[in-house]
Amino acid sequence: MNIHNYKAINWNAIEDKIDKLTYEKLTEQFWLSTRMPVSKDKSDWTNLPDKEKKLVERVFVGLTMLDTLQSEVGVDALKPDAITKHEVAVYNNIAFMESEHARSYSSIFSTLNTNKEIREIFDWAETHEALQQKVKIIVGIYENGTPLQKKVASVFLESFLFYSGFYTPLNYLGKSKLINVAEVIKLIIRDESAHGSYIGYKFKVGFSKLNEYEQEEIKIWTYQLLYQLYENECKYTEYLYDEVGWTEDVKLFLRYNANKALMNLGLSPLFPDTSEDVNPIVMNGLSTSTTNHDFFSSVGNGYLMSVVEEMNDDDYDI
């Protein structure tokens, strides 16, 4: 058995500038949930109707499950197909932040809920059919899919499936409720946006190397997967939102973000919905501009740990 000499990663010899720019962008965005003043939202939480509290709890535990999936399974599924060592370094960063995202929801739970309530919330997630079904679909692709199929699944999770949950805190933010909780979510959205764009870029690199027949084959597979995920996500959305009357608004938001996921992959949108159709309160919340900033410790979601070259969506175009 021949054992080749192992190579160290050399950041002075960049093979793909997007690897370097993305790594720097992600490190610039670094944050920790423990530094966010979620406890300031206790009064808002106390005044929420019970049915809305239940919605928030279930939304957040569902998001926790998806972040756990990405950190434990999803990123590792992408690493074997990485082209450069710098790409692996980006995936390592993504995996850590997905773990921190999952921890952030537990930080919210520990602030707003009792231990008994937290156990019940997690028990619900382990048995809910639609939530478990979308996890099974994505895991199946991570375990058995081709390199490009795995990237499609990851982008759909990052850029589409999270958003049935993100709708709730963004809606409350627009109504000046649970503002500090929403600020945590906006930090997570900022990360997920970068993750989805980067992995979508890597998909486009691989897609460009296929012949015309192979390209058409993966496109058909991708749209079929999106239909399957959207159908299941509608069931999940109805279960969560019917009681508060937000279901149709959330489904529209889902379709808008499904189109964004396809665009990350360099594919044409599927649904007719645009940003103008989405609830403007929620769209405004998607802005990742800062509101919290601790000037004494220089920590906050507006704090820049370093100055790096700004990245635009066009940077990911092939």
Rank of each mutant, 00 (worst) to 15 (best):
M1D: 15
N2W: 09
I3L: 09
Y6M: 11
W11F: 13
I14C: 01
D16Q: 13
D19L: 07
L21R: 15
Y23S: 10
E28R: 12
E28N: 13
F30M: 07
F30R: 05
W31P: 03
S33I: 08
S33H: 12
R35V: 13
R35E: 15
M36R: 12
S43I: 15
S43Q: 10
S43N: 07
D44Q: 12
D44E: 00
W45Q: 12
K51W: 01
E52V: 14
E52R: 03
K53L: 00
K53N: 07
L55M: 10
R58I: 06
F60C: 07
F60V: 09
M65T: 15
L66W: 06
L66G: 09
D67I: 08
T68R: 07
Q70H: 13
L78W: 04
P80L: 10
D81Q: 13
D81T: 15
A82D: 01
A82R: 01
H86T: 11
Y91A: 06
F96R: 08
S99M: 13
H101L: 02
H101P: 09
R103Y: 14
S106V: 10
S107L: 11
F109D: 11
N115G: 15
F122G: 09
W124E: 04
E126Y: 12
E126T: 13
T127A: 14
H128M: 10
H128P: 13
L131W: 13
Q133T: 11
Q133G: 05
K136H: 04
I137M: 11
I138V: 12
G140Y: 07
G140M: 03
I141P: 09
E143W: 04
T146N: 03
P147V: 12
A153F: 06
A153L: 04
V155A: 00
E158R: 02
F160D: 02
G165E: 03
F166P: 04
T168D: 00
P169F: 00
Y172P: 01
K175P: 05
N180I: 00
N180V: 03
V184W: 03
I189T: 03
D191K: 03
S193E: 11
A194D: 13
G196N: 01
S197V: 11
I199E: 07
I199P: 06
G200V: 02
F203C: 00
V205E: 10
V205Q: 12
G206Q: 06
F207L: 05
L210Y: 06
Y213Q: 14
Q215L: 09
E217I: 13
T222L: 02
Y223G: 07
L225H: 05
Y227W: 09
Y230L: 15
E231D: 14
E231S: 08
N232L: 14
C234I: 15
C234T: 14
V244E: 07
W246N: 03
E248C: 08
K251W: 02
K251G: 05
F253Q: 10
N257S: 06
A258N: 09
N259M: 00
N259V: 02
A261E: 06
F271P: 00
T274R: 00
E276R: 10
E276H: 14
I281D: 04
I281G: 09
M283Q: 11
M283R: 10
L286T: 10
T288K: 02
H293G: 02
D294P: 00
F296Q: 14
S298N: 15
S298F: 09
V299T: 13
V299K: 11
G300V: 10
G300R: 01
G300K: 04
L304C: 08
L304M: 12
M305W: 11
V307L: 10
V307M: 11
E309T: 08
E310W: 13
D313C: 07
Y316T: 12
